[in-house]
Design a protein around this nucleic acid. Sequence first.
DNA 1: CCGTGCATGTAATTCGTTACATGATTCC
DNA 2: GGAATCATGTAACGAATTACATGCACGG
Lengths: 189, 189
Amino acid sequence: MTPRASRLGFAVLGLLHQVPRSGYDVRKLFATTPLGHFSDSPGAVYPALRGLEARGFIEKVPGKAAGGRRRQAFRPTAAGRRAFRRWLEAQPTPDEVGKDLDAQLLRLAFLEPILPPSAVDRALAALERAATIHLKALDRFFEAAAPAMTPSGRLAFEAGTEGFRSFRSWARRARRRRARVAARREKRS
Amino acid sequence: MTPRASRLGFAVLGLLHQVPRSGYDVRKLFATTPLGHFSDSPGAVYPALRGLEARGFIEKVPGKAAGGRRRQAFRPTAAGRRAFRRWLEAQPTPDEVGKDLDAQLLRLAFLEPILPPSAVDRALAALERAATIHLKALDRFFEAAAPAMTPSGRLAFEAGTEGFRSFRSWARRARRRRARVAARREKRS
DNA sequence: CCGTGCATGTAATTCGTTACATGATTCC
DNA sequence: GGAATCATGTAACGAATTACATGCACGG
């Protein structure tokens, strides 16, 4: 067994941090919310739960089965909380941001309330930095490759670049907004 | 064996449409260009090639091995070209756009020169439409769920929404730009 | 002639998907 | 009592990753 959990594993582990949930609860969340795009199929969720349990990251909530229905809820163990915290604290590299922005946003979503607000500020700054570096690489590539590309090829590339550009400016805005709010709060006290 | 190729399969098939390439050529492309984020590992590329060959979508280019180096290039067969064309012609649903925008951009990138420019216009319109519908769903969800979310959760969701919003406005701009250019060309003739 | 990079592959493992299977409970 | 849905799983399969393995050719 691999020591680390998969992306789906961490998503489930994060959800169990909020409140104990059963596999069915998790499936419903995946099915009804656009948070990430995880499969709500039982063949994905139940094996993930068993994997987390085998790693000692979650445990069954004992007793009761409210309502009489069969139902097995899970909650994170101390080891699970440690592992999740380590995952949250990892800083994104420019390459990871370029290849898998969704994973970074998943991380960001779960940061609070496990880590303090300062971690959110740090994460935003890291994301902005990484996006800037990645954008530079994209622009460099485009400059060299654009002449040989078809119009539709250029369009597709442009769409990708634009996405990162807008992400970076979003991160910057979010960071500054938070800084402003923090300053105001500071002043008032 | 599944009749349809995987996403990696179609990406490779598309690259082989441009010019015959060997597995090594494909790996280098994946390693050095940011086009999609495919693995350049041999364990991904060579099995993909064999899969396409087994489906009858590509064939070995016979003869020569320029330079004396060992090298096996592939090119699409008639069946492969048909299959790729069918893949290109598929219109994205709002759900697919929401769940896997990258796949849609991959498609867009390969549209030309296999399909005519009009197909690009149609694809842009479909993408814009799908993004609009998806955005509506995101907004609806956010309205209901935001009060219960943590600040970092809201931030992550906002980032995702912003990404789609910017994608949609990019698609609209691109579409209009193309319409303008086409109109000017029409007038001049 | 020896290392570096070209070039192609295999093996073990893990993850996820689709589809199937099962039983219990609540609602009507 | 029958349908819907709650709730949990398994089986078969496909695809991808990492790591390992091999052999040739070209440059110095």
